[in-house]
């Protein structure tokens, strides 16, 4: 269980104005500004939940995850993870959590991943039999067999990420903080990682908090999303409810040509090219519009979808910025 009450994390940063003269001046006289990376965020996550943690770049996502995993002291507020205060970095706490950072690596570059794994086994004090069992399970789920004996430097980005995940999970943590675990990976590998995270979550009743720039990850994995912007919480709840409240209209797309004035009567045009037309239709008019389309000549390959989460997020951030100003 993760409990966060009014968390604040402020940084004092050195303001560096552009130009050589200003740089020289700043050697002698430095001006500092306070950056409010996280500014009063509260939420509770129950054991076993999978939560997407979203926000634009610089919203405070990584800072929050670092506070939750004990790497940063909070400036103010109460944080409790698995009944520990993270900033104390107690061994009992660290053995229950893991933080995976898609942009950083812990595997030893010159050695096969298996060496990092056995190093972590010793550091986390995992009993050999237990270690073998967990490794066998991870090897099966992530298909690591071919990878464990190859030097890390020879692995592809996706293969390396799979081995990083294994390194981060060999002590069987019950709380997972995943910061962009699929960054830079191709679509097939993203799906693999996603499936794995879900499987781990279900097998071990593990709590998962995930940030990702790929909204597909979030849609596929997280029934609940917490959204922050400018260090403040702007949404916490069911993903589908969020989509519905922000963009209640469905997207209907179809192949085939249709006159502009007819489209206008059916719904709002989103995109149109020679092959495909996409329109937005309010849910209560869906039945009528579909009926019309099905009856139309040369209309085919009909699809009804929710608007993409990217668009929902863009609209959410825009509306909050407008509120603030």
């Amino acid at each position: 269980m993760i409990q966060v009450r009014d968390l604040k994390k402020h940084f004092k940063v050195h303001k560096r104005p552009p130009g050589l003269a200003a740089a020289l001046r700043s050697v002698v006289h430095r001006t500092y500004t306070t950056v409010k990376a996280v500014d009063g965020v509260s939420f509770t996550i129950e054991r076993g939940e999978r939560v997407g943690f979203l926000g634009p770049t610089g919203a405070g996502k990584t800072t929050t995850l670092k506070v939750l995993s004990g790497l940063l002291h909070p400036t103010a507020g109460e944080v409790s993870v698995a009944e520990h205060r993270p900033q104390k970095r107690a061994a009992a706490f660290l053995r229950q959590i893991t933080l995976v950072m898609g942009q950083k690596q812990q595997l030893i570059w010159d050695l096969p991943p298996a060496e990092t794994w056995s190093l972590n086994r010793a550091v986390f004090g995992v009993a050999p039999a237990e270690f073998d069992r967990t490794l066998a399970e991870l090897t099966e789920l992530l298909d690591l067999k071919e990878l464990s004996q190859k030097p890390t430097r020879q692995l592809s980005l996706g293969e390396r990420m799979k081995c990083e995940l294994a390194a981060a999970l060999l002590h069987k943590p019950t709380t997972l903080f995943l910061d962009e675990p699929t960054i830079g990976l191709d679509v097939a590998m993203q799906v693999t990682i996603r499936e794995f995270i879900r499987e781990y979550n279900q097998r071990h009743d593990a709590t998962v908090m995930l940030t990702s720039h790929y909204m597909d990850d979030v849609v596929a994995l997280c029934p609940r999303v917490i959204v922050i912007d400018g260090g403040r919480l702007i949404h916490d709840g069911d993903l589908r409810a969020l989509v519905k409240s922000m963009m209640p209209d469905k997207r209907v797309s179809f192949a085939g040509a249709m006159a502009a004035d007819v489209i206008e009567r059916l719904g709002r045009l989103v995109t149109q090219d020679s092959a495909r037309t996409t329109i937005e239709v309010p849910e209560d008019r869906l039945r009528e519009v579909i009926g019309h389309l099905l009856a139309g000549e040369g209309i085919g390959d009909l699809a009804i979808e929710d608007p993409p989460l990217e668009d929902v997020m863009r609209k959410l951030f825009k509306s909050k910025t407008a509120d603030a100003s």
């Binding site: 660290l94 942009q103 950083k104």
Partner: peptide
């Protein structure tokens, strides 16, 4: 410098020893 020092601090052992 690369930031992967964070992984050292996530280990349940004395950081200076590691």
């Amino acid at each position: 410098r690369s930031g992967s020092f964070d992984y050292t601090l996530l280990k349940p052992a004395d950081a200076q020893f590691l």
